[in-house]
Amino acid sequence: MSEYSEEDKQKVLEKLAQKPWQTRDLAKVLKMKKRDVDKIVKELINEGKADYWSSGSTTYVTTPEKVQEMEAKREDLK
């Protein structure tokens, strides 16, 4: 039984589309339990709606579109 609603999931997805996040920060911003945000993020990753991106030392979660955008920026920097 999930402890979060579809509405919560949608809120997380909207935030992920804005920029890469660490789930602890996302939980603070959305005033949700970190454990629930973690579960939502896992579900979104399984559905292909979220993906990981790393700054090098830290792994963030965002949408696949945002990952492409970040990588395009990296290419431009080369």
Binding site: I45, N46, D51, Y52, W53, S54, S55, G56, S57, T59, V61, V67, M70, E71, R74
Partner: peptide, 18 residues
Amino acid sequence: WKHGGIVSVRGYGGGVIG
């Protein structure tokens, strides 16, 4: 060396060090 970027494969958040 510098690091970062896409660091893994589909569904994984680690295992590759860019």
